[in-house]
């Protein structure tokens, strides 16, 4: 790892100031960033820890919305987001227990790993990502593998999830990393059903619109029986072919609907 200056502000305002420095990089739970820095694929000159900012931690519920502070760990969400059980279960299935004790929702969503779980939860829920300077809907936020609309130095302070009528997330593990080989989050709202898929596409998390239409009309696994997922743009690697992932999208969507 290249040496850097470590700073740990206690307010969002101080963190924003610290992140204005040349080569500054925000550190959330560090479960992905730290290994990346060991490989020297990330080489910040200032590392700004967001782990000391109390105002970015915790789960609150109100008005049919669950709001999670950006620096809240997966373990905390798993335990405290019971108002949105599918989301709590998603958080409880990320990584392993020690990773969940450290990794955060803000870090996961800002990183937008194409196989991460939270982007699927956020996109399927039509979540609102709140930063130090604006609110962004999930539909506008994710921009392909590891890409988001976040500006440099912009911090996710919280994420708000409208609680659906029914929802479930089904993850098929990539067996080595325990990220999603493919994961599907299905959420049924009064206005319709949203289906978000992670792990499968070269373009990162995406909504499966055909399934959404079918499920909005009939929320049952059989509703998608006639649909086909194209393997075009799907990831192909040693863990699964594009065709296999396309197949999984449909299988897991059906399972998520049944589980919801």
């Amino acid at each position: 790892m290249i040496e850097f200056e470590f700073v740990k502000p206690s307010t969002v305002a101080d963190a924003v100031k610290a992140l204005a420095a040349d080569g500054a990089q925000a550190l959330s739970g560090g479960q992905t960033l730290t290994p990346t820095m060991k490989q020297r694929l990330a080489t910040p000159s200032v590392l700004v820890s967001l782990n000391g900012i109390a105002e970015m931690k915790g789960v609150t519920v109100g008005g049919g919305v669950v709001t999670i502070g950006g620096a809240t760990t997966h373990a905390t969400v798993a335990k405290e987001a019971s108002a949105y059980p599918a989301l709590a279960r998603l958080a409880g299935g990320i990584g392993d227990p020690a990773v969940r004790n450290r990794g955060t929702i803000g870090g996961s969503i800002a990183n937008n790993d194409p196989a991460a779980c939270y982007p699927a939860g956020a996109l399927a829920s039509g979540a609102v990502i709140v930063t130090n300077k604006r609110s962004i809907t999930a539909d506008d936020f994710f921009k392909g593998m590891f890409a988001t609309v976040l500006d440099e130095g912009e911090i996710i302070t919280s994420v708000s999830f409208p609680v659906p009528l029914k929802a479930a997330y089904v993850k098929f593990d990539q067996p080595a990393s325990r990220f999603a080989l493919t994961g599907v989050f299905v959420a049924q709202y009064a206005g319709g059903v949203r289906v978000a898929v992670t792990g499968a596409s070269n373009n990162g998390v995406f909504r499966w619109k055909e399934a959404e239409a079918a499920l909005s009309a009939n929320f049952s696994a059989s509703a998608i029986a006639g649909l086909k997922v194209s393997p075009k743009d799907m990831i192909s690697d040693l863990h699964g072919t594009a065709e296999y992932r396309a197949h999984l999208v449909k299988v897991l969507t059906g399972r998520a609907v049944s589980a919801a």
Binding site: F6, K8, L27, G30, Q31, T34, P35, L47, S49, N51, A75, P97, A98, V99, N101, R102
Partner: peptide, 13 residues
């Protein structure tokens, strides 16, 4: 009191 992976946490944090 919480189990964590010490190889992925900075001492100063």
């Amino acid at each position: 009191g919480v189990a964590v992976k010490s190889c992925s946490i900075f001492a100063q944090d």
